[in-house]
Design a protein around this nucleic acid. Structure first.
Lengths: 249, 249
DNA sequence: ATCTATTGTTCTTATATACAAACTAAATTT
DNA sequence: AAATTTAGTTTGTATATAAGAACAATAGAT
């Protein structure tokens, strides 16, 4: 059972982190379903402590400078992130499509790193570090869940698998059988299961036998020739091997 | 009056951000004066939400990957920070001493950016982004407080000015007269007022007439020749002018 | 310019959190 | 190996926070 006040503070940070424009008190109140009167003192304190700031121009709350400070202090997996970034740069250089890294947060994928091709594409996939999406209908998520048992899956989604598109897997058995394949082939595939016109491949990244993150390449359907998908598979599996060769302690 | 639950969550983040090794539940409990039983569910939730993580090796809580995510999303003053960084790099290249940027947080200075000389110095000043120190006895702080009136100062420090060294200014009148000088000369000076053997010069950085940050150079006393201090003054005043020429909106 | 809608703020009481103390488990010492 | 210390966890109740509603202030519409 989560601690509500803590959950709220962190949800506010999560919310603002995917909202560059900023949000008003009322907007935040609606977004996280917390009464304005409850939110009021929380936002005040967060402002006093520089975790959020009221933009003078737009009169909206945005992330404050303290978030930058703690982000800079984050060192635990600094080396891991740097290494992942360099791998992702190489992948993007080859395939010229967006490459992302995510970790599991409860039953969601948290998007941690993003590497985009420099130029040249008219149609681009928009994504943001800090975003959270359900794991069961994303390639990153399936890669991250690949070690999960049927029981664990059902516990993770007590309300079942809610469809986003007509391709979304809503049957636990189907999902489970896919995870089995992923465990063997080390690559997760997703075709328009969360967004129409979009498909995505991903590989799990392991450290000491545990899946700690996953790496993906997303492509708009019309650019997703079999040839291209084969190259993506190759690049991702190669990235996974590179990652596996390093020990991050 | 601050909101306690919010304050606690953010204090935990602040605490862990200046502690690369990590802290145990009990250590955090002592550090922020919160009972273990109160802390317990808070840390659980923060862990679930990836804002902290229990290091497998040391069994201590460290910052989690979400802090990295929100830090990456912080965009508000992105351009300002980048500009400040480039200025600081130039300053350090010239003077080969540590250069820092800070903002005011209540009556404390929050250290936001740090730029250190590459190599060559046996004795270095250790500092960390995310650190907080009282404003009245630091050069950065005095620069940030330079626009404050006597009344505002006394309200900011209701318990008076607590001494850290024999040089710490404990008299409001003395502090106020220094601030007056800073307002005219645009440079704040501090000689062993918080740490023995250390002195520091700082300039306020303004935007639309408001002091939004301050920039400092710190030197160990034995390297602080008058010549060097003069050069520091010149570099900092020049940095301030550069900063003033840009409009960050 | 008045009315309407929306945002932010204050107030009161029901409710959920906070705290203390007791307990368990692990680690270190004797 | 027993004892002592230290860490983490659980429980019951005092207390501080949460939420609804009512209010003030601002912005937008007619």
């Amino acid at each position: 059972m989560p601690h509500k006040p803590t959950e709220r503070v962190l949800n506010i940070l999560n919310l603002l982190s995917v909202n560059a424009v900023g949000l008003t008190l009322t907007e935040i109140s609606k977004a996280i379903s917390v009464p304005k009167s409850t939110l009021y003192p929380i936002l005040q304190t967060m402002t006093d402590m520089n975790y959020i700031q009221l933009s003078k121009s737009s009169f909206r709350y945005k992330l404050g400078i303290s978030t930058f400070c703690i982000g800079s202090s984050y060192s635990q997996d600094e080396y891991m992130l740097e290494f992942a970034k360099s791998i992702m740069k190489n992948v993007v250089a080859e395939i010229k499509e967006i490459c992302q890294m995510g970790v599991l947060e409860g039953n969601n994928v948290l998007y941690v790193l993003k590497e985009e091709p420099e130029v040249g594409l008219d149609i681009r996939i928009i994504s943001r570090v800090g975003k959270r999406l359900p794991a069961y209908c994303t390639a990153l998520g399936k890669a991250l869940l690949s070690n999960y048992s049927m029981e664990e899956l059902k516990k993770l989604y007590p309300k079942g698998l809610i469809p986003y598109t007509e391709n979304t897997i809503t049957d636990f058995d189907v999902l489970n059988s896919q995870l089995l394949t992923i465990r063997q082939e080390h690559i997760a595939k997703e075709y328009e299961e969360i967004t129409n016109g979009l498909c995505c491949y991903a590989v799990p990244l392991e450290s000491n036998g545990n899946i700690i993150a996953a790496l993906s390449v997303s492509v708009p359907n019309f650019r997703a020739t079999q040839e291209k998908l084969n190259l993506i598979t190759e690049l991702l599996l190669n990235a996974r091997r590179q990652f596996g060769n390093v020990n991050f302690k």
